[in-house]
């Protein structure tokens, strides 16, 4: 089967890949990162994941019942949204945070615009941004993991990197033994999920590759070719999680190959600008959201010309 068939939003009825199958694959790919989160941050992480997923599914169910629409929770997309939302929360947030986030993600961002495939921004990321802007104190303090020896220093790797890159251990970044939101820390688990999805033809490698690659290059160039620093920069924060699981959302990323390259490089550039110069310590979610809103325009100007298309008059 051709690669791009699975990814365009048109209903390819003949294809064996249904939305449900794709979303189940994504859930499987997300599992390792979640398990790592529970291992590092304890039972509370599990509670937040559960609440977030249940809220998202219930919100979709209740909305569709109220509006007398066909119930679509069987497609598993609400589960994926719930998982991604939970992975973007620190494990210390109060338990009402995932509830509010889930309702915003499903109702405001997705269902109001017509349900799956119609949202123009990633639901989980938008909900996270709303929560982050509203309750910055709760959302911006990251707990340390249960296996960290030095309990005093709870600064995130990103904050430390800016001043002293040598003191951050690359091994800790890879296995996830560092403070952060609950699903982002273990990069190995995230990468494993990403490779699984690419192998299953669910994920197009272009967006993550361009995203991570362009960010890496920018950090490398601006640090005077400090290789060690640039590598740690791309393994710190939520860059991996965002690039692999959230920038690649079908509904909110461009369809054409050129569009995807532009999208990925744009994400990398904005991430670099926000990390280096702006208020927020981590620019991953905002960079993806900004490229999300540019996606209709990117699609418009990079769409392949249809055979026999006539330029419209006027």
């Amino acid at each position: 089967m051709q690669k791009n068939l699975a990814i365009t939003s048109c209903p390819h009825i003949r294809s064996r890949k249904t939305t449900q199958k794709i979303m189940q694959d994504v859930c499987i790919a997300l599992a390792p990162a979640g398990i790592a989160g529970i291992v590092y941050f304890g039972a509370r992480a599990a509670a937040i994941i559960a609440i977030s997923v249940v809220t998202c599914v219930l919100a979709e169910l209740v909305y569709e019942k109220m509006m007398n629409q066909r119930v679509t929770i069987g497609d598993w997309s609400a589960v994926v949204t719930g998982l991604l939302l939970a992975y973007n929360l620190p494990s210390t947030v109060p338990l009402w945070i995932p509830i509010i986030g889930g309702i915003i993600a499903i109702v405001l961002v997705k269902m109001l615009f017509g349900g799956i495939g119609s949202n123009f921004m990633n639901p989980a990321l938008t909900a996270r941004a709303v929560l982050f802007v509203s309750w910055g104190g709760l959302m911006g303090t990251y707990p340390i993991t249960r296996y960290m020896a030095d309990t005093v220093s709870a600064a995130t790797p990103l904050a430390v990197l800016a001043t002293d890159s040598a003191s951050v251990s690359l091994v800790d970044l890879m296995i996830g033994n560092c403070p952060g939101v609950l699903g982002e820390t273990c990069k190995l688990a995230i990468l494993a999920g990403g490779i699984f999805l690419i192998a299953r033809d669910v994920l197009d490698w272009k967006i993550p590759a361009c995203f991570i690659g362009s960010a890496f290059l920018l950090f490398l160039l601006t640090s005077g070719f400090n290789f060690d620093y640039a590598v740690k920069e791309i393994f710190a924060g939520s860059l991996m999680l965002g690039a692999i699981f959230m920038a690649t959302d079908y509904a909110t990323s461009p369809q054409s190959n050129l569009g995807r390259v532009i999208f990925g490089v744009g994400c990398g550039l904005i991430l670099f600008i926000i990390r280096a110069y702006a208020n927020y310590p981590e620019g991953c979610s905002f960079s993806i959201l900004f490229m999300n809103i540019l996606t209709p325009l990117i699609d418009r100007y990079t769409a392949p010309k249809y055979f026999g298309e006539v330029k419209q008059h006027g």
């Binding site: 615009f113 921004m121 702006a278 208020n279 960079s287 959201l289 900004f290 809103i293």
Partner: peptide
Amino acid sequence: PGALIMSGLMAIAFMGFGGLI
């Protein structure tokens, strides 16, 4: 109503640039 909610969500994306200068 739709256009207003779209603008609101767009504004969230623009907030990432806060404090850039």
